[in-house]
Design a protein around this nucleic acid. Structure first.
Lengths: 131, 131
DNA sequence: ATATTATTAGTAATCATTATTAATAAGTAA
DNA sequence: TTACTTATTAATAATGATTACTAATAATAT
C-alpha cells in the first residue's frame, strides 16, 4: 500500500511546468492552470510544487522575492537580467563541471550536495536599450 | 547640495552589521539594535538596509525565506548547512577567481556584473551528528 | 536662527506562503 | 461493484516578511 495518491491536480501542475519553461512562480502556475481548471486551489498549487521539489522531480529557485520552479532537474545554473528580470539557463560544459567538482572537494569543513549559481547583469536586448 | 542625510539610525544599523558578521536578517538587526536603541523603528531598519545594499555598502543575500545582510563586500560566496542552517563564507583563491572570470567572458548573450554562488550540504558538526 | 525637506517612528497595508478544516475522491479490500 | 479508509483538495483564515503611509522630527543649506 502506497501512502501517496495520483491525483488530477498533481498531473495538471506538473504538466504546466513541462509546458512553461520560464521558471514560473507558484502564482504564475496558479494563473496558468486556473484558465483551464478554474476550481483548482492556490494552496494546492503551492503544496504540490513544494512536494514535487522535495521529491526532486522539479527544482525550486530562490533568487527572487518569490520562489520560482524549474522542470529542468539536470545540473545547470541561471542568469537573471537586472533590467527585464528575464531568466536564462546556463549549462556548464564538461571541463567546467569538472573544475567545479574539484573545487567542491577542496573543502574540509563541509560536504557539498547542491550548488546554486546565479549570474546577474544585462541581457543582450537590455544592453542595446541601455545605449 | 547632497540630497541624503547622515543620521544616527544609519550609523547604528551599519555599525550593527560590522559587529555581527553572522549574516543577520533585517529582523535580527532590529532585535539587536532595539536593545540599545529601543525607539528605532523596524521600518527604518528595513529601509536603511535596503538603501545600503543599493549603494553597494553592504550585500543582500537571498537564499533564505527572509533576506540576509552581509557587511563583507569583497567578492565571496556562501555555504549553507541544510541541517543547522549555519552560513559559512567561501572565498575563492586567485586561480579560481580567474577561472570564474574566464568563464563569465564566454557568454555572448549577456554581460555579467554579479555572481552569487550558494553551496548547500552538511557542515562538519552536522556530519558527525548524522552518524 | 530659520527654513527646507530628507528621514524617522509608528502603524496599516500588502504580498507570499502556510495552516486549518470539512468535503472529496484515490486506492484497497470485501 | 460497493463500501471503507484516509490522502488530498478547495476555500479561506492565519502567519511572516516587507513595503507604504503619514505626521512628527531633525539634518543641512541659507
Amino acid at each position: 500500500m502506497n501512502n501517496t495518491r495520483e491525483t488530477l491536480q498533481k498531473k495538471i501542475i506538473f504538466d504546466c511546468l513541462k509546458n512553461n519553461k520560464v521558471h514560473p512562480t507558484a502564482e504564475d502556475v496558479y494563473n496558468i492552470v486556473h484558465k483551464d481548471y478554474p476550481n483548482i486551489s492556490k494552496a494546492t498549487v503551492y503544496r504540490v510544487l513544494s512536494k514535487l521539489s522535495e521529491n526532486g522531480q522539479i527544482r525550486k529557485l530562490d533568487f527572487d522575492t518569490s520562489s520560482r520552479f524549474d522542470d529542468e532537474i539536470a545540473p545547470h545554473y541561471h542568469f537573471v537580467c537586472k533590467r527585464c528580470n528575464k531568466i536564462i539557463d546556463v549549462f556548464l560544459n564538461e571541463e567546467r563541471l569538472t573544475q567545479l567538482d574539484e573545487f567542491k572537494q577542496t573543502f574540509n569543513d563541509f560536504s557539498i550536495d547542491d550548488t546554486e549559481i546565479v549570474f546577474k547583469g544585462l541581457c543582450k536586448d537590455c544592453q542595446k536599450k541601455e545605449n
